[in-house]
Amino acid sequence: AVTGSQTALLLRAFEKDRFPGIAAREELARETGLPESRIQIWFQNRR
Results as ranks from 00 to 15, higher is better:
37 S>W: 15
30 R>W: 06
33 G>I: 01
42 W>M: 01
44 Q>V: 09
13 A>L: 07
9 L>N: 03
18 R>T: 06
40 Q>A: 14
38 R>T: 15
34 L>M: 06
42 W>T: 01
19 F>Q: 05
43 F>H: 02
39 I>C: 03
28 L>I: 08
43 F>R: 00
15 E>W: 10
1 A>G: 12
18 R>V: 05
10 L>D: 00
32 T>F: 03
19 F>H: 08
6 Q>M: 11
25 R>L: 15
36 E>N: 05
24 A>H: 04
2 V>M: 15
14 F>K: 02
16 K>C: 07
45 N>T: 11
27 E>F: 09
33 G>V: 01
19 F>M: 05
36 E>K: 04
26 E>H: 11
39 I>G: 01
2 V>L: 15
26 E>L: 15
9 L>Q: 08
18 R>I: 05
43 F>S: 00
17 D>L: 04
11 L>C: 13
7 T>S: 11
14 F>L: 03
38 R>C: 15
19 F>L: 04
30 R>F: 06
44 Q>I: 11
26 E>S: 08
45 N>H: 11
32 T>E: 01
29 A>N: 02
21 G>N: 13
24 A>T: 08
6 Q>H: 07
13 A>T: 04
6 Q>G: 03
22 I>V: 12
11 L>Q: 11
42 W>L: 02
37 S>T: 10
34 L>A: 02
39 I>F: 02
12 R>D: 06
25 R>F: 14
11 L>W: 07
23 A>G: 08
30 R>S: 05
35 P>G: 05
27 E>I: 12
2 V>A: 07
19 F>R: 04
23 A>Q: 13
26 E>I: 11
25 R>G: 02
33 G>M: 04
32 T>L: 09
37 S>F: 12
10 L>I: 01
6 Q>S: 05
37 S>H: 12
15 E>N: 09
8 A>E: 13
2 V>H: 05
9 L>I: 15
7 T>A: 14
39 I>V: 09
13 A>Q: 04
34 L>Y: 03
26 E>P: 01
42 W>I: 00
11 L>Y: 05
24 A>L: 10
21 G>D: 13
7 T>E: 15
16 K>F: 09
41 I>P: 00
43 F>A: 02
14 F>S: 01
22 I>S: 10
29 A>S: 12
2 V>K: 04
43 F>E: 01
41 I>E: 15
6 Q>R: 06
36 E>R: 04
20 P>Y: 02
38 R>P: 02
20 P>D: 01
41 I>F: 09
20 P>H: 01
5 S>I: 13
22 I>P: 14
35 P>S: 15
9 L>G: 02
44 Q>G: 05
33 G>L: 03
34 L>D: 00
3 T>N: 11
6 Q>F: 07
18 R>M: 13
15 E>A: 11
12 R>F: 06
39 I>H: 02
21 G>W: 03
6 Q>N: 06
18 R>N: 10
29 A>K: 03
11 L>P: 02
32 T>Y: 02
27 E>G: 06
27 E>Q: 14
15 E>F: 11
